[in-house]
Design a protein around this nucleic acid. Structure first.
Lengths: 194, 194, 194, 194
DNA sequence: AATGAATGAGAATTCATTCAT
DNA sequence: TATGAATGAATTCTCATTCAT
């Protein structure tokens, strides 16, 4: 992930902003938002706290910036879904694609999953909830009973909780991913047929 | 929620410890663990910070004490499950009872759900994970494929995530609860039959 | 030291005051005055902090009370010295007797030695300094040069520093005590003869 | 003692670290380590407590830093002693030089003398004891009886206790210093000859 | 002779943030 | 593109002390 063409330890230039984001994500996913201090981030990067403020206006800003990269694929997925017919096939494809997006931004989802209290105050919380609702709309069947709604919700939710919760279950990672996707697909399928 | 019939702020005697727990739970569930300061708790109670330290050794201790009351019903549920035959009927009953325990300690589950990063460092994190695994064992079918494991996990998980996530879905609270229970039961049933 | 006629762990009665003093001395000698809290003393005794306040007015009071027992023998020594002729023989006897007093109250002297900064603010500091000066007067020769004054001071000082400083020198305790006394006597003898 | 010629409180730049050390030493020597709070140091300097933490990691760190400057001359003295022949002349010179080092760092020695209980927990305690033992080795005669050991110990000890203890004895400071040195030299000489 | 409950003052430390250079 | 120096506000926690019972 680090390109590292130079050999001088501190001197990568131009990519500082990116490196801040990398380190911030890593630390925050591991320790939580409030437990991760700017001092810690700066230290691990070998720069001063003040340097962080050259690149970002506030601590919150750093986190928000992380989500910018995440939201795009989801927005694209929603756009794509909007133009498809509302078939079971489409719904399955949505879940599959969502699984890919999720795998590509695993640490970020972990952060979201484990810092919900923080998310709520970080503006992005609301942003994300909207995306989820957006996706949900495309999974729901015509017959929107409460049970079906829960089923679809559960499908989505299980997908991005599953990854982290299953961490300490033995078994191949890819196998787990498939299993999660299967269960989610089942749930949506049942909703569709009921 | 506070049982006291009087509303004079200072005059209840002897129940301070309980009142600290009540207020702490309320605030922490709302704002998260790290965002909730002892000053805030004390102020809302009309006592000094030092008073909190008379009743609890540390901030962490307050939270841990909250979980003591929660763990008991779950432990009892596990004990009960241990002595039942491993039938589908039993599994359904487990979920039903779990749902009750969950409803009785809703704010605490909300806290857990939304402060997972914190839980991990609060010792109780591990404690709770063990209970979950304990329950899971009694839900799993004889044929433990990965998919089935995920199904049961998903059932359990959906139950205690569901309550809060469905908060802003319109509909009667009791109806939602029933729907969640139904979906969870379905998942376990499928695992059992597969 | 503890009389212990009863067998119930907490129930020794009547001697609480004494027990507070014992524990306080022990802890303070070990950790210093400010580092030793009343909570710690109370806990080690199995009583509440409030109980300490039944027996002593303040924390300082506890320490002051310890010195009451110490000062008496020294005062007696000074009184005795006052009535002796100012011979070398008398001076040697003073040192010998001082050595005994010192051995009898070793932990207290250790406390004094190691908490001088505290002593200065604890009133007793001045009290003790007066005693020292009183003793010194009886050791000084007629010819009071600065050097002789230092010699006598050094004698006295070495005696009550010696014990603790020599702690980690190998050798029999009694042997060390004798050596210290010998050196002190030498110093006073030289002053006397010069 | 502060070299600065100006008396404007805020305007010196770049020397803050040094100023913190100066003020800390002054206050701690006067009141003891635990009685001196960072607030007090900061206030007297006209900066915030947080500024202290920019320059030093902890309160303990401030004190430790003070000793760094002190240890060097003593280490040099020991090194020097190592290369001299073990004659009486050398030993006298050691004491003389030690007296100089002592005079140059008087407040620090006063702090050590009066806060021994604190020193023991401040790591530097052990450091210093080692230096003392190092010096002692070069003062001891070939015939190491317990009495001789005490004599040398007493010599060293009297030197750095003497300064402060003699504070309230009337007489010229320089004269006292000479007297102390004389008595110490006498003690070592006797040990050498015995 | 002692406890249970509390207080007020203050401690050390940490944090996000700012700004002149 | 950064750093060095600092701040203000907060935090957790500890302490000696008090007082009604």
């Amino acid at each position: 992930m680090v390109t590292g063409s130079s050999n001088k330890p501190q001197q990568r230039r131009g990519d500082t902003r990116q490196r801040i984001q990398d380190v911030a994500l890593e630390l925050i996913a591991e320790q939580g938002y409030e437990k991760t201090s700017l001092r810690e981030i700066a230290e691990r990067l070998g720069v001063t706290k003040a340097a962080l403020y050259y690149h970002f206006k506030t601590k919150e800003d750093i986190v928000v910036s992380l989500f910018d990269d995440l939201m795009t694929p989801i927005d694209e997925l929603i756009s794509w879904a909007k133009e498809q017919p509302s078939t079971l096939e489409t719904k399955r494809e949505i879940l599959t694609r969502y699984g890919v997006a999720l795998a590509n931004a695993a640490p970020l989802f972990r952060f979201m999953q484990e810092n919900q209290a923080t998310m709520r105050e970080l503006s992005i919380g609301e942003d994300f909830k909207q995306r989820m609702t957006g996706l949900l709309d495309h999974l729901l069947p015509e017959d929107v009973t409460m049970t079906n709604r829960v089923r679809c919700f559960s499908a989505l939710f299980s997908m991005h909780a599953g990854m982290f919760v299953l961490k300490d279950v033995e078994g191949d990672l890819e196998e787990k991913r498939m299993a999660v996707l299967e269960v989610a697909t089942d749930l949506v399928t049942q909703a569709h047929r009921s």
